[in-house]
Amino acid sequence: MSRNPPLSRLLPFPVVDEAWRLALVPALVAAVTLPFLPPVGILALATSLGVLWFHRDPERTPPEPEAAVVAPADGTVSVVREEGERLRVGVYMSATDVHVNRAPIAGEVREVRHRPGANRPAFDKESERNEQVAIDVGEYELLVIAGWFARRIHPAVEAGDRIERGDRVGHVSFGSRADVVLPTDVDREHLLVAEGDSVRAGETIIAERE
């Protein structure tokens, strides 16, 4: 995922490129209104800074062992269930979580699919009918699901890309969920997380593999 180093140096934290475009309108409103309508200008400035903070993109270092499966997102584990012969682990990203998604396992992207849908709250069990982007890596699949407010999912990979464990694979704006449908060789005895656990993308080990 590309970032803009010159602009990022203006902040105490790095952000994704999309953040600058989204923050531009409230920043312009702040510049125009601050001299004449200070309360409106301050609110617009706070909104602009809030958008940048929401889209922060910290560095992450995947832990050993290399075979371990890491979390695809920051947030709270909201789904752990069997789907046929495979396990699905979903992570709900709240408004305060980092919304950059990372590869839980290395592999080659076979396909990136977009599916339109509803916009239920990401923590709702019906949210799996929401708009989503599926990143198919063959032995596993990563599903980024939009929330009620989110309307923009930004995959950063395409078919044929080689991704390493912990690599950035995209981000989503304003509330969402990221689910990984694990390989068939991962079952419940390999899981290290349960519903309600807090995880960090690219760093928390959610399952072991031999």
Rank of each mutant, 00 (worst) to 15 (best):
V169F: 10
R102T: 03
I163W: 10
R162M: 11
G50L: 12
E59F: 11
T96S: 14
S173K: 13
G84I: 03
I105H: 04
G90L: 07
M93R: 03
E141C: 07
P63Q: 04
A118D: 14
E164Q: 14
R120H: 14
V69G: 00
I145V: 13
Y140K: 00
A67I: 06
V80G: 01
V51Q: 02
P65H: 02
A71R: 09
A103G: 06
N119S: 15
H99K: 09
P121F: 09
S94L: 04
R113Y: 04
G175I: 05
F174Q: 12
I153W: 09
E164R: 14
N101Y: 11
R152D: 09
Q132S: 06
V100R: 10
P72E: 04
G107W: 00
G147D: 12
K125Q: 13
D161M: 05
I145K: 02
A67R: 09
R120V: 11
N101T: 11
D97Q: 11
E158L: 11
E139Q: 05
L52P: 00
F54E: 05
A122I: 13
D167G: 14
R129I: 12
V112M: 11
F174C: 06
P121I: 12
E83I: 09
E85C: 00
D97N: 15
V91W: 03
V98P: 01
G160L: 05
D124E: 15
G117F: 08
P65A: 03
R60N: 01
D167F: 13
P58L: 08
S176R: 03
F149S: 13
E126T: 15
A71P: 05
R110E: 14
E164L: 13
G50D: 05
D74N: 14
V133K: 00
P62N: 04
L87Q: 02
A156I: 11
D124S: 15
V144A: 06
V80F: 03
A103E: 02
H114Y: 12
A106Q: 08
G107K: 01
N130M: 04
R152K: 08
I163Q: 12
R129F: 15
V137Q: 02
E139H: 07
P155G: 03
V91L: 03
H154S: 13
R102E: 01
D74P: 08
I145P: 00
G170T: 04
D161K: 10
R88Q: 10
V51L: 12
D97H: 11
I153G: 02
V112F: 07
G166K: 07
